[in-house]
Amino acid sequence: MPSKPFTPKVITANALLEGDVVYLTGDNWTRDLSKAEILTDEADADLRLIEASAQSDKVVGVYLADVTVNGSVPVPVHFREDFRAKGPSNYAHGKQEQF
């Protein structure tokens, strides 16, 4: 059976100290999804995930999240990732303050 084609992903996690949702950008982490590095190659994504997971002094719970690409900006596929990118909908206590 052919495996499902690889769809674009970003690497995401929570920051160890603040708990904030963060995304991998090259060698660093950003709180802004629009600045996240978009991974389009499966083997590359797997490798990057392993490297990112090793940064346990900075982040917790590293995983790949599906995105679609709008221009060059990643957009969440699932509503959970949309909420993670923005913060809670009841107060402007999350990232909606910043971004």
Binding site: E18, G19, G61, R80, R84, G87
Partner: peptide
């Protein structure tokens, strides 16, 4: 054990 969770956006 000390009641500290990691949730969606924060601890």
């Amino acid at each position: 054990m000390n009641g500290l969770y990691l949730q969606l956006h924060a601890y």
